[in-house]
């Protein structure tokens, strides 16, 4: 028994030491210029969603990621680096995207990411490239008509880990319990398994879900403004200015509206003219 205690003492001392060392060891190493590297390799690595219909969804047929975000990323890459430039995609979740960007695994995030003051402390954002607003998806015939109906003890709302909508719903319906799942595919499946009364996130994503699932509808309009931005690591100012420039150019050339129409033209209940630029 004595030996056991001695072992434990040694254990916790070493644990403490190890922690101090690792804390000192963490630092931001992504100082290299993303833009210079992109110019050199003629490619940009984008973090995109792979589970979000209309924005970034992995196609079962060819395992390619397809959606509005992916198309905008391709258009921007071509605009910035020329016709033969390549847009690489790394699939991210709301939880993994910021650490991946900070670590330099990806050059930029274009993954249904709202520009918020909290996030802007950690990463830089481009100008907004899509105007979403938070809303609710419920089963048809559900008593939930808007966000106020959720503000009751015992009500469960489903969201996604790391999503801004989870923080918002805690403000709009503080009495509801929020269940945070890993990604939108999981969240939708949980809603259908009655794990919560509503699924909350941005309207664009929700309409994408409603298209595939006729038993479910988007209700209550939007109760927040969620401008989506492209996130770029702090300090990468030339990358940011090139993204902003390219964004203006694809809006001007009409390519932006084409992509909007391609993805949102046939979504019932969603007026794509409102988000055209």
């Amino acid at each position: 028994m004595k030996k056991l205690f001695r072992n434990l003492t040694v254990l916790f001392t070493m644990l403490g030491l190890g922690l101090i060392l690792t804390s000192c060891g963490t630092r931001d190493t992504s100082n290299a210029s993303v833009w210079q590297n992109a110019e050199k390799t003629k490619s940009i690595t984008w973090g995109v969603k792979a589970d979000t219909k209309l924005f970034g969804l992995m196609d079962v047929k060819d395992s390619k990621i397809k959606g509005f975000d992916a198309d905008i990323a391709r258009a921007l890459t071509r605009q910035m680096l020329g016709k033969d430039a390549k847009a690489n995609f790394v699939q991210v979740s709301s939880q993994t995207r910021i650490p991946l960007l900070k670590n330099g695994n990806i050059d930029a995030i274009i993954a249904t990411m709202t520009i918020t003051p909290d996030r802007a402390k950690i990463v830089d954002f481009s100008d907004s490239y899509f105007d979403a607003g938070q809303s609710l998806l419920v089963k048809k015939g559900s008593p939930i008509k808007n966000v106020r109906d959720l503000n009751k003890p015992g009500t469960k709302v489903i969201g996604v880990v790391g999503a801004n909508s989870v923080e918002n719903i805690k403000k709009f319906a503080p009495k509801a319990k929020v269940l945070e799942l890993q990604d939108y595919a999981q969240a939708l499946t949980a809603l259908k398994s009655n794990q919560g009364a509503a699924l909350t996130t941005d309207n664009g994503i929700l309409f994408g879900m409603a298209v595939e699932n006729p038993g479910y509808q988007v209700v209550g309009g939007t109760f927040t403004k969620e401008p989506y931005g492209i996130a770029i690591n702090k300090g990468q100012t030339d990358m940011k200015s090139h993204v902003n420039k390219a964004l203006k150019e694809i809006v001007k050339s009409g390519e932006y509206n084409q992509i909007i129409k391609k993805w949102f033209g046939n979504v019932s209940g969603f007026n794509y003219k409102e988000v055209e630029r």
Binding site: T22, V161, G162
Partner: peptide
């Protein structure tokens, strides 16, 4: 997970 994704301090949260 929730702490890591609200504080953005991934490494320390998981530590």
């Amino acid at each position: 997970n929730t702490i890591a994704s609200t504080t953005f301090d991934t490494i320390n949260s998981y530590l």
